[in-house]
Design a binder for these strands. Structure first.
Lengths: 183, 183
DNA sequence: CCTTGTTGTTATCGACTGATAACTAGCGTC
DNA sequence: GACGCTAGTTATCAGTCGATAACAACAAGG
């Protein structure tokens, strides 16, 4: 457990992973840089120096999360280019509940101009990517995104993911997602 | 513009309306009680004394917002008990973008146990209410909620509501909501 | 008009929190 | 094996923010 010295890039990567967890749990305004630092095992000022600003760290975290979501969709489309296939990749994403939830916190922090701009751009990109990957109709893509938002919100409410909070409506709702009348 | 003296209940009501605006704009952690106070035209300590705690004020705000959403749905069902009718009431809710967005901020703040519990309870209630009011199948209700979440997220991103931020994907997405292949 | 209860304010605390500055220490290299 | 560069720390500030306490002003009743 001796202090392992890493390059700035490597350490930034670790901090970014910690940031996903921390921001996912408490959102942009609700997360202190000190908590991220503790999760990453470094000092709080160093976190700031690596990313310049809490805001920039959040933007980096958001972009990283969106990259991961998109690449998960790409991998799924690689196996089978259907909405159903991409939908299954949600389950692949779910275990790390934070991924989706960080995005939700980005939406919530949209009143900050820089965050709003980033988040709109990334959401639009995901929307476009899903359409291109599957060749589905706009209506189908929109419904897919809608379902995704519902799952994201439920993840934020902690009724999905590992050890979810018990909730009758949640289980009922999830089961009614399993059998859509078509697809 | 002389100081109008109100009863505590009346003033609380005004503060609550200000809280909807403020929390809707910046979320739970991102909003300062002082800003709510300024919006309501009273001093910050008085806001605290009326509600005890910032958290309790947020809970009151959340509950009030959910009440308004539910009653909007009830009014819509009173006119016509279909999902399409309830869906139109979204447009009625939209002008005050904040209403939906406050709820989103509640989801985002679910890591706070008290907020999480409240928000889960209220979301489940809305879900149940929609089902009861329309008699739609669980799958239909779920899809309705999913669409609602998508609209809520878009409201948070400021691409809907009065003077929305221009966005190609947003207009495209909204138009594909207008013509679902059935209903 | 004076007392009393309720509305509302000003003053202020104490904890927090992002950011800066200045210093320390490991690692390669000539 | 000193030098220099980059990784990382400790110390600390300056501004914020929720909350408390003490006080002020207004209205109603006797």
């Amino acid at each position: 457990m001796t202090k392992t010295r890493l390059t700035a890039a490597e350490r930034s990567e670790e901090v970014l992973q910690a940031a996903v967890v921390a921001f996912g749990a408490n959102g942009y305004a609700g997360t202190k840089t000190d908590e991220i630092a503790r999760l990453a095992g470094v000092s709080q000022p160093y976190v700031i120096r690596l990313f310049g600003t809490k805001q920039q760290l959040f933007l980096a975290t958001t972009n990283r999360v969106c990259d991961q979501i998109e690449s998960a969709f790409r991998r799924a489309a690689d196996r089978e280019a259907t909405l159903a296939s991409l939908g299954e990749s949600y389950n692949e994403l779910m275990p790390e509940r934070e991924l989706l939830v960080v995005l939700l916190h980005g939406f919530a922090a949209s009143s900050d101009p820089a965050i709003g701009e980033t988040v709109r751009e990334r959401f639009g990109r995901i929307h476009k990517t899903v359409g291109e990957l599957t060749g589905a109709t706009p209506e189908e893509v929109t419904r897919f995104m809608a379902t995704g938002m519902l799952l994201t919100v439920m993840a934020a409410m902690q009724v999905t993911g590992k050890n979810p909070i018990a909730c009758e409506w949640a289980t009922e709702l999830l089961s009614s997602l399993g059998n859509p009348d078509e697809d």
